[in-house]
Every structure is written in C-alpha cells, then in structure tokens.
Design a binder for these strands. Structure first.
Length: 500
RNA sequence: GGUCGGGUGGCCGAGCGGUUAGGCAGAGGUCUGCAAAACCUCGUACGGCGGUUCGAAUCCGCUCCCGACCUCCA
C-alpha cells in the first residue's frame, strides 16, 4: 500500500516514492543531551515513531537514523564566542563532558522506553564522527563553498545562494532579508564575509573543554555539520526522508541542505517532514522560559500545571489524537479526557480478544460497516499519517465491538471471516502502529497471577452474596475493591474487573 | 519589522467547497437489586465584516486576536 507525505520542501502532500523499492531511509534530528528531555522532544519522537511503525507495518524495510548531539551545539547567538551547551553543563557540575552526555543519553532512552518509542536502527553521536566531519569540511573547502579565517571555517552562503537560488527554500526566507536582519552584535562577525555565513569548524579557546585537532585549529565542529555527515554516512548522499521539529527548519535544516550541496553537489533528502510544537498554556513549551513540564513530572503529577499524574500510554494517546503537523495545547482537562478515551479503547481491545464468533453469520450491514471502517483506518493513516482520523474510525469500531459484547448487535450479521479480520487488525493496529500498550496487561508474573486469583475469589464471594440478596455484603466487597483501585462491572454474563 | 501557521460547539481535536469526524463532559432513555459499564437518542459549532458560488467552517478581500520562526530549543 502506498501513502502520502506532506513535504515541507514543496509545501504539498506528495505520493511517497522510495528511492529503492521496498526500502525507506529516514533521518531525524535527535536531542542535544545537556539536560533532561522535555515533552516537546517526546512529541516529536512519538510522531516519528508512529510514522516509522506505520511504514514497517505496510511492509517497508526502514532504516531509521536518529542522532545524539553531544558537541557543537552552542548557547547564545554566535557561532563563536558562545559556550557549548554540554561543555557549560560539565563546567557547572564539575564533570567530564562525556559524563554529562552519558547521563542524559541514558535518561533520554529511559523516557523513550516509557513512551514505547522504538529505538532507531542507528543512533550515531557527533563526537563519534569527528574524522568524517573534518573530511567533510575539507571537501566543502576544496569545492570552494567555505573559507578559513583564523582557524575557523565558515560556509559561504552567498556563493551557495547565488549559484542555486536555494538558500532559504525550505524555510521560506530570502538571503537579502537574512542580510538585512542579521544582528549587529554578533561576535567575530568580522571574520565572516557575509552575515548569514555559518561556522562549520570553530577554533576553540583554551577554556573550551571539548576540542579536537584539525588542519585549521584545535577546535570543534559546527552544530549543523554532524547531521549532514552522519546522514550521508548511514543513508547515502541521497535518501528518502529527513525529519525534525519545525523549529529546526531554520537555520539548522537550511544550513544542512547548503552543506550537503557544498560537499556533494545536491540536497540530502527528497522529502522533509516537520512536526509541530507542543504548547502549554497556549505558548510553546520551552526550556528557557520555564513554561515547561518534564515527562517525569507529567507522569508523577509533580507539577503545578496538572492535578494528577498520567500514565505514559495516556500521554502517548493524547498526542496521537492530534495531527503531527498541528500544534497541540497541553492541559489538565484535555489529559483527563484522553485518559478516559484511552481506557475505553483498550477495554474494547481486551473484550474483542476474548470474544469468539459462534461460527455462523451472514454478510449483514454490520459486516460491511466493519470492513469499511477497517479500510478507512488504513486510508487515513496513508494520508500523511493522520492518526487522529484513524483513531476516530477505531472508536467507531469500539462502538461495534461493545455492541457485539453487550448483545445489542448480533454475530449473525457478521461472517466469521470479517470477525477474524477485526480480531486481528484492530488490536494489531493499536499496538504495532499506534504503539499503545495496555497498562493492565502485566504479563504473567507470579505476583500478578496471585492477584488475579484473589480478585476472582472476591468476585465469586460477592456473587454468592448477591444470590442471597445480601446487598450489604455485595456492596461492601465492591466498595472495598474500588478503594483499592479495582472497579467491578456487572454484566449479564458475569462480573468483570479493571485495575485503575 | 520580515516570514509562516492558527482562530471550529462547555473542553480537546479532525475536516479545508455539498456528506455524522472522533474523544471527554452534559441531557433523556434501555438494561440492572442499586451503582458502574455498555447500548440508543439529543448539540446544527466554525473570530468579525464583506464578496465569489445553486451551495462556504472550507475559496477571495479587508479586519481583529493568538502563536511559531527570524537568536539556543523538537
């Protein structure tokens, strides 16, 4: 099955055509590991997790590369004279830069695991590719798209712009505007020929903790360089998709394209995908101005912005309810609504898995509805990964599943084949594509099994009490369990329980 | 100031020329010892003002708000 992608470069939805039939190469800009990941990161990586999961689900062999930035990302607004983020943190905490990198990389992986984000196939680090980066700088110099000044090397944006007319193509900027609006107070601006030029190798002053020898100086690579170099190394000079947060369009991705042109004469990726921002209180979540909540705070509830903690799967579900290209405004109220919706979805999934088709059924209206809805789930996802629409169809299926379970709908209207399709596709889509796992599915540990049996025993005792019309005892058991977080639900074929 | 993207029913959030989005909350009903759950029914919403059209939330113009990027952030 084919699918469509909104290409940020053309600003249009395009039919996706892979470079090599059946294979997809995708590169996504990963985090700079100088502090805990924030939720905005999580949303971006959940979005790309959804996208790569779906591509795999459709049968593509995907190579997903997502880097770790562990050098070269500077604070402040200059290419030089500013401090490296990781270097700064290391200085403040009196640790080795690599201790900082290690700590936050591990923390990042923990958070990704909690949200059931699958690891990329390759997760390269900038510091692991110094040799390749230096080689690329040499190549760009050799081809004449960069120049050296006092041990630093700058990319010649003007030359690139004049030659291709493409500088600013991705972000919708014009180089004349970039000239006019560049800030006056850039340090070392006199080293640059043009204000929009950017450093690809930066000479380090002696206080700089992270520096490496190079033909030009003891220094470090410019931030944008690593992505050009590592994407080329692992995916080739041209690959299918490049992704990242929309705030990376400029200057990061624009400069990346320029560098690739400088190094090999053409742009790296054919499709560019950008995820939109996560907002809180109507404003972008930002590390720098405090309008933020960390993933762990959101899970624990330890934040003034929320009334309680939310399960990571609830948060993931909440994020999937909006399209990746739309902004999403986080609020406590919206999360509570998501929590209930998520439970409803997962409960239906459990019920469906427990159901059996009696064996006889006709192609009734229900049959065609279910087939139609299942088809639509895929159509929606294939239209630029429209998870919210796919979820809407899934919820219509929830309705049908519950009706079958509750007896309001009959299996007689449903062929065994269609039921089988539903029973396979519905749960598979939820877990494989949406990456939503049932928190009540605790596997088969001995403890969990004991718990199950004890609850079943209490339900049996309550059943006896009910038969004897001993409502006091019956309600006592129900209320006591409720207080422990176990909700009982009576239906005509017995009592079920859910662990909250 | 420049560039881009938004303003959708109580809340979140799809849709982007004609069809019910969906979730949560709310109202009524069925079922039930009661409750919960489930099922059925119920909302005619698209910032404002004009215009195009047989028909606009969806296209065009003006206008008012909001946000992002332009400077480190996904």
């Amino acid at each position: 099955m084919s699918f469509k992608i909104y290409n940020s470069l053309s600003r249009k939805k395009e039919e996706f055509k892979p470079l090599h039939e059946g294979f997809i190469g995708i590169y996504v800009c990963g985090p700079t590991v100088y502090s805990d990941v924030h939720l905005g990161n999580v949303r971006t990586f959940i979005s790309f997790d959804l996208i790569t999961r779906y591509m795999r689900h459709l049968g593509y062999k995907v190579r997903y590369v997502r880097n770790i930035t562990d050098v070269g990302h500077l604070e402040g607004d200059a290419d030089t004279g500013a401090e490296d983020k990781i270097g700064k943190k290391a200085r403040l905490e009196q640790l080795e830069p690599m201790e900082i990198v290690e700590r936050y990389t591990l923390g990042f992986h923990d958070v990704m695991r909690m949200f059931n984000v699958l690891p990329p196939n390759i997760e390269p680090r900038a510091t692991g590719h110094l040799i390749e980066q230096i080689e690329t700088v040499k190549e760009i110099l050799k081809r004449g798209y960069a120049y050296e000044v006092n041990g630093s090397v700058y990319f010649d944006t003007l030359k690139y712009a004049e030659e291709t007319g493409k500088y600013g193509e991705l972000s919708g900027r014009k180089i004349e505007e970039l000239i006019a609006l560049s800030r006056e107070d850039l340090k070392n601006q006199d080293e640059k020929r043009h204000p929009s030029d950017f450093a690809i190798w930066i000479k380090a002053d002696p206080s700089h903790l992270m520096r490496w020898p190079s033909p030009w100086s003891v220094g470090f690579p410019g931030w944008h360089l690593e992505c050009s170099v590592m994407s080329t190394k692992y995916l080739g000079e041209t690959f299918d998709i490049h992704g990242g947060g929309s705030d990376l369009k400029f200057p990061h991705h624009e400069n990346e394209i320029a560098q690739n042109y400088g190094a090999c004469g053409h742009a790296p990726a054919r499709y560019w995908m950008h995820t939109n921002m996560l907002l809180m209180n109507g404003r972008k979540m930002s590390k720098s101005d405090g309008n933020t909540i960390t993933p762990l705070e959101l899970i624990s509830g330890n934040s003034p912005h929320i009334s309680k903690g939310y399960h990571p799967m609830v948060i993931r579900f909440f994020m999937l309810q909006s399209h990746y290209r739309s902004t999403l405004d986080l609020s406590d109220e919206a999360l509570q609504a998501a929590e209930k919706g998520f439970k409803r979805l997962m409960e239906a999934r459990r019920h469906l898995l427990d159901m059996k088709h009696p064996g006889r059924g006709e192609k009734g209206e229900l049959d065609s509805e279910i087939n139609r809805l299942l088809d639509q789930v895929y159509e929606e996802m294939s239209d630029d990964f429209n998870a919210p629409k796919a979820l809407a169809r899934l919820f219509e299926l929830v309705n049908r599943i519950n009706a079958l379970k509750g007896g309001q709908a009959s299996f007689e209207q449903l062929t065994p084949e269609t039921f089988q399709r539903l029973q396979q596709t519905f749960p598979a889509f939820i877990s494989d594509v949406l990456g939503l796992e049932d928190p009540t599915d605790k596997g088969g540990s001995g403890q969990a099994e004991l718990l199950h049996k004890l609850i079943e025993l209490l339900i049996e005792l309550r059943q006896k009490a009910r038969q004897e019309k001993n409502w006091a005892m019956s309600d006592f058991i129900r209320d006591a369990l409720k207080n422990m977080g176990v909700t009982l639900k009576d239906s005509k074929d017995g009592t079920e329980w859910v662990l909250e």
